[in-house]
Computed example of a mutant assay.
Amino acid sequence: MRLAFSETTPDYENHLAPYQVLGFPEDGETAATAFGYGMLPSNRELTRFYLARSVRIDLARYTESRRERYVRRQCDTLRRAFLPRAQLAGPDDWADMCVRYMNESSWWLTRRGRPFRTADLTARLNSPMTTHLLTLTDTTDNSPAALGTLYVEPPIAYYALAFYDTRYRKTSVGSHLMSSVISELQHHGLSHVYLGTCYYEGARYKTRFTGMEFFDGLGWSDDRKKLQLFLSRQNDLSGQHLFDHPSYLETGPPPRPEDTTLRLADAPQPQHIDSVEE
Rank of each mutant, 00 (worst) to 15 (best):
R2C: 12
P10F: 07
L16M: 13
A17V: 14
V21E: 14
V21Y: 15
L22C: 12
F24I: 12
D27Y: 14
T30L: 02
T33M: 01
T33G: 09
A34D: 06
G38C: 06
P41H: 03
P41Q: 06
E45K: 11
L51T: 04
A52M: 02
S54E: 04
R56V: 00
R56S: 00
L59E: 05
E64Q: 10
R69N: 11
Q74K: 15
Q74S: 07
Q74F: 03
R79V: 14
R79N: 12
R80G: 13
A81D: 15
L83Y: 12
R85Y: 11
Q87Y: 09
Q87E: 15
D93Y: 01
D93L: 08
M102A: 10
E104A: 15
R111T: 03
R111K: 14
L121Y: 05
L121N: 05
L121M: 07
A123C: 07
R124M: 13
R124G: 15
L125K: 04
M129A: 10
M129G: 01
H132S: 02
L133S: 08
T137L: 04
N142P: 04
S143K: 06
A145S: 01
G148N: 09
T149D: 06
Y151Q: 03
Y158N: 05
L161D: 12
Y164Q: 09
R167L: 05
S172Y: 06
G174S: 15
S175N: 13
S183Y: 03
Q186V: 03
L190F: 03
S191L: 00
V193R: 02
G196D: 15
A203K: 14
A203S: 15
Y205A: 10
R208G: 14
T210I: 02
E213A: 02
E213C: 04
W220H: 08
W220S: 06
K226Q: 10
K226Y: 11
L227Y: 10
F230R: 01
S232Y: 02
R233M: 03
S238F: 09
H241T: 12
D244I: 04
P246G: 12
P254R: 11
R256V: 03
P257H: 05
E258S: 13
E258Y: 03
R263E: 15
R263M: 10
P268T: 01
I273M: 10
